[in-house]
Write a protein that binds this DNA or RNA. Structure first.
Lengths: 223, 223
DNA sequence: ATATGCATGTCGTAA
DNA sequence: TTACGACGTGCATAT
């Protein structure tokens, strides 16, 4: 990884287009082609290039770092007015992040303990493709109704209710009116609650579980 | 801004929870509290803390960088096993990004040249709050119908059609059936097209304009 | 390659 | 503060 402290101007053209006047920034270039330009505020880089981009240094009046992405074609040019520091870091790293508390783990939990939704609930499919989208969990209740679950790891917003409604309507068109929709989340915004109730959809409160040592991709032994 | 090259372990607990085993990473700490940990791949930091977090250095067996955010309470601990470099950069920067090609500029364009939607179209409101959400543009057509526009700066997906459908249904409940919905975007995904047609909604092709020198927040003189 | 949806999303804006 | 939606979203996954 290369890190540069410099006063620079930045020109970007691609999906959008931007200009950034002169100022001091931290530039990070990764071996996978990722290119980050950070101002002294915010979590987000002010400009960037994603992995797979190709970088080169051009010598014009000022040296210019040029990073190019194809597909979509995007160009990032960093005009270096003054370079305060350049450093190369040969970083060795074989570890991957192990994260827990995701929506995927809420789904696992529901398959393990379906009674968390309601007595007699039977989950049947996970990430089931239907006519207009992909349902988080599709199952049946004790009365034989189809039940669509839409899971959210955080407070559910209008967006989540729209999603659930879209799935329920698609399934009702195919399977008739015996289709229920349940939004499963730790909580609901006011607007989400209003739309949910108006549409005759339901809500079950469920927090995303924080398990021990959830490793990327596949779940390891539980305690 | 402080930049550290180090072999470290990372422990995060907050909205979710994660562990990252030992490896070489680049750490950036900004004066606004932003805290970034970058591995040698991907545009995204593997762990982070947003602006407003408070950082301190604790001396245990190893030195540990602790960054804490309140509301929500989130803790990030970086256990430094070996520090290769530490550097402080007093970055002076008074410039802001000027970006063009946004959805906001599509809206401006439509207010300037409403015939891009159709002859006789009259835009009335921008970002208009309605019962279930906020409509991008609300206007009337030459026949006196209410017209809802949903704008997307890039290829529109199912998500965009769901949004438009939610707005149109909310307005139909209030104003009766003389309500049209038009998705305005450079293109449509296959699934978006299918749902749009099934719902009797419409599509107008429009690219986000790249103007000269669009500055943050307010638009400057056009050529 | 396209389509779909999650994310510790982050960020800006309005009520 | 909460709600809502954009973002050059990035990213993984399935087709």
């Amino acid at each position: 990884m290369i890190t540069v402290f410099a006063r620079c101007r930045v020109h970007y053209d691609g999906r959008a287009k931007s200009e950034l006047g002169p100022g001091d920034r931290v530039i990070v270039i990764k071996p996978d082609g990722s290119f980050l330009i950070h101002q002294s505020k915010k979590r987000e880089p002010v400009n960037w290039q994603p992995p797979g981009s190709r970088v080169r240094l051009e010598l014009r009046e000022n040296p210019v770092l040029v990073s190019i992405r194809r597909k979509p074609r995007e160009t990032l040019e960093v005009e270096l007015e003054e370079v305060y520091m350049v450093s190369l870091f040969r970083a060795e790293d074989y570890e991957e992040l192990a994260l827990t508390g995701s929506e995927a783990e809420m789904a696992e939990l529901i398959f393990e303990r379906p009674e968390l939704i309601e007595p007699g609930f039977k989950p049947l499919f996970r990430e089931k493709q239907i006519k207009h989208g992909i349902v988080d969990i599709l199952g049946r209740d004790s009365s034989g109704n189809l039940v669509v679950l839409e899971l959210k790891r955080r407070r559910a917003e209008l967006h989540a209710v729209s999603q659930l409604k879209r799935y329920v309507e698609a399934l009702r068109e195919e399977h008739g009116n015996g289709v229920r929709g349940i939004l499963v989340a730790p909580s609901l915004t006011s607007g989400a609650k209003r739309l949910l109730e108006e549409e005759g959809l339901e809500f079950r409160k469920l927090e995303p579980p924080k398990r021990d040592r959830k490793s990327r991709g596949r779940q390891t032994t539980l305690v």
